[in-house]
């Protein structure tokens, strides 16, 4: 038997074999390798610049906050007086920290059931696809409305309504500390409601995506075992999509804590600590938006300190989210 002639192409430049066939050379050109290198450095540069940007923001905020940190220390976090009058200056951010947390958590309490429910409805075929597509689009449009428009809508539509509801709540359930004040218009309740509407698209869109991306075999297996549709949704689909849903909720929480414009227009901007959700309140971001333009010296530092607290709070929320999602995934891997 004759040995087959083996053709081969050089892998290195030092190997010199005459090119054969339709290919001039199997070697990669210098230009191609150069482009590879440039592409790598370019993407690496972009990635690093994000980190640098984040660090520099944190650094600038911290440096500008230093005078206030030295003057008030951790007392800043637990005192409630906010007095910019020179000579008697005292700054404590407790009402704003409380307002930030409570408004965001109230918003979540409203938006999570609504958003996850909507996501379930939109990921199942309860209604024809054409209607579903329109509904999904409308939910996503909610995210496109500028926050100042939400604020205006809050002032002209929501506040008159919540004032009536609040009055009823106060008159019938006034013994509960959360409803212990007479609503005067702006306050925590309308702000939380607007926040809930603003974070709804985040929760709905991400939850729907994670539900829709589950393999169809999961649903069929459950139904094939004689489970009902609702049993399948609650026992199989939601647990399987849980990490995505938790991610959505945490993202929404971060958004709610940082939202400024709409909140500042309807929360009442009162630097006081009040358990009643019918009373005016304030959040950190709303405080910054209101006072920064006219602040000077120590007040600027105090505002920067408040901003630093907000950054750290959102950071904690994000780390917590990563941790929870990691725990859930570890259970399933």
């Amino acid at each position: 038997m004759a040995l087959a002639v083996i053709k081969y192409y050089p892998l290195f430049r030092s190997m010199t074999v005459t090119p054969q066939g339709q290919y001039a050379s199997r070697l990669r050109s210098r230009t191609e390798k150069g482009i590879d290198g440039v592409f790598f450095s370019l993407t690496a540069g972009f990635a690093i610049s994000i980190g640098v940007l984040l660090l520099s923001i944190g650094l600038v905020v911290t440096i500008n906050a230093l005078p206030a940190i030295q003057a008030f220390g951790l007392k800043f976090l637990i005192t409630s007086e906010w007095n910019p009058v020179s000579g008697r200056e005292a700054y404590g951010a407790l009402p704003m920290i409380y307002g930030t947390l409570v408004s965001a958590i109230l918003a979540l309490l409203i938006a999570v059931p609504l958003g996850v429910g909507t996501a379930i409805f939109l990921s199942e075929n309860f209604i024809p696809l054409a209607f579903r597509t329109v509904l999904v689009f409308m939910v996503e449009l909610l995210a496109a409305i500028p926050s100042v428009v939400y604020g205006l809508w809050g002032i002209f539509v929501l506040i008159p309504i919540t004032k009536e509801i609040g009055r009823w709540l106060h008159n019938t359930l006034g013994w509960i500390p959360f409803f212990s004040t007479m609503p005067r218009g702006p306050g925590m309740l309308p702000a939380a409601l607007v926040l809930a509407i603003m974070i709804l698209p985040i929760i709905t869109a991400i939850s729907r995506d994670s539900l829709a991306s589950l393999p169809p075999e999961l649903r069929q297996a459950s139904l094939g075992l004689g489970a009902t549709r609702w049993g399948t949704i609650f026992r199989v689909l939601i647990p399987a999509a849980f990490s995505g849903i938790v991610g959505a909720v945490m993202l929404a929480l971060g958004r709610a804590m940082g939202e400024t414009m709409a909140v500042t227009m309807i929360i009442g901007n009162a630097n006081q600590l009040n358990l009643s959700i019918l009373a005016p309140a304030n959040t950190i971001s709303s405080l910054l938006a209101n006072q920064f333009a006219e602040a000077k010296d120590l007040q600027v530092a105090a505002l920067m300190y408040a901003a630093l607290v907000l950054v750290i709070m959102t950071l904690i929320v994000n780390i917590l989210a990563e941790y929870i999602v990691g725990q859930i995934q570890a259970k399933y891997d």
Binding site: P215, E217, L218, Q220, A221, S222, G224
Partner: peptide
């Protein structure tokens, strides 16, 4: 249909355990 599936079970092409 739910009661039908309790009498007539199904094994699928791709193994599809629940994430449990």
């Amino acid at each position: 249909p739910v009661s039908v599936r309790r009498h007539i079970g199904m094994v699928f092409q791709k193994p599809n355990p629940f994430p449990k």
